[in-house]
């Protein structure tokens, strides 16, 4: 099985949930920007959550499926169309043999995730299939997809096959089928333009002027055009330290908000370096990374302070929800039809 890239789109890359275990050697994590959306799309086709899929940015690709393929599109709404039929997000979809998946206008967010049953079978490099663009390794030949790429799809598991069989029965004359099941709306992050993002204090929050700490939470920050998968550069009120200080570089993570000497914060994203030397004013709560990942250039972000305990509570609720979705899908697979 394979899928053929007829048009690559703006920036389409192979991503799984990231490359872990080698950060101490300076190897970045990479992986899906909106990991939630990739996880859900994988679950909906019966994959392991960590299977590799495609991260599609702003301008989507055109993809040809020679054989019947079970797919799911989640995350940002880039108007996916399968053989002239609009594809609903957050559902399981049968793409019949010889079908064409295209994308259109950006309706919400900026990154869509495409999962295929069996996963994109790109070579595993350092425990991951994620594309590490800067080092030119991982993913598909270490780069974003190009016209003519033929991506192998992994062998279908029993779960993949059961879901395909179940849905294929409901297919219409053109062979396309959309699942009746979908993801419960309350599990979804509240995707919106200009999101409010919850954050806990950063490790150096106390080093900032009191005024700066207050402004950081009360003003909005605009995402500059120089932003990318590595980090979002923000423009807004200048943030100042109480006194000038050189910090010894230390580990950072997804969602770390650091402030370089120009006082304009940078939020570190999926392709962040492993360590950083700028003072960290805040850390985005893990549950809201998906909102950030879907925020477009030029949008405004407002940060809201929450306690560590609240950030953890939100995390645990989200994870519980994902596990419930996983077992509900297993039930469907076992032949018990129901709502997810």
């Amino acid at each position: 099985m394979s899928m053929i890239i007829l048009k690559p789109g703006l920036l389409t890359t192979v991503q799984d949930l990231g490359r872990y275990g080698a950060q101490q050697f300076g190897v970045i994590v990479a992986g899906a920007m909106d990991a939630f959306a990739l996880r859900i799309s994988n679950l909906l086709v019966g994959n392991d959550e960590n299977a590799a899929g495609l991260e599609i940015t702003m301008v989507g690709p055109e993809i040809y499926f020679a054989e019947r393929t079970l797919i799911s599109v989640c995350g940002g709404d880039l108007s996916p169309v399968l053989n002239d039929r609009e594809v609903p997000l957050w559902k399981t979809v049968v793409a019949p043999e010889g079908s064409l998946l295209r994308f259109g206008r950006v309706r919400l967010g900026c990154r869509a995730y495409l999962a295929v049953a069996g996963g994109v079978d790109a070579p595993v490099r350092m425990n991951s299939r994620s594309t590490y663009l800067r080092a030119g390794i991982g993913g598909w030949e270490g780069r974003s997809l190009q016209k003519g790429d033929r991506l192998p799809v992994g062998a279908a598991s029993p779960a993949n096959r059961a879901l395909t069989a179940l849905l294929a029965d409901e297919a219409e004359a053109d062979g396309v089928a959309f699942s009746r099941w979908s993801v419960a709306p309350d599990l979804l992050p509240s995707y919106t333009a200009n999101p409010e993002v919850r954050a806990v204090p950063g490790q150096e929050a106390a080093l900032f002027e009191k005024d700066s700490a207050v402004r950081f939470l009360n003003e909005t920050y605009q995402i500059r055009t120089e932003s990318d998968r590595m980090g979002y550069r923000l423009t807004g009120e200048i943030l100042r330290l109480r006194e000038k200080r050189e910090l010894a570089s230390a580990a950072v993570t997804f969602g770390t908000v650091q402030v370089p000497p120009d006082g304009q914060p940078i939020v570190l994203m999926a392709d962040r370096q492993t360590i950083g030397g700028y003072p960290k004013i805040a850390q985005v709560a893990s549950v809201d990374l998906a909102l950030l990942a879907q925020a477009n250039l030029g949008e405004r972000i407002r940060f809201r302070s929450v306690s560590w305990r609240e950030a953890q509570r939100l995390y645990l609720i989200r994870e519980n929800g994902i596990r419930m979705l996983r077992s509900a899908l297993a039930h469907i697979n076992a032949g018990v039809d129901g709502k997810v």
């Binding site: 950060q23 101490q24 010894a248 230390a250 580990a251 993570t253 492993t274 360590i275 953890q312 995390y315």
Partner: peptide, 21 residues
């Protein structure tokens, strides 16, 4: 526990809160 990263003054340990709990 996922991994750890040593730096000049510190070691940072990354983990999955759900699994750690």
């Amino acid at each position: 526990m996922i991994e750890y990263v040593p730096a000049f003054l510190s070691v940072t340990v990354y983990f999955d809160p759900f699994e750690a709990l």
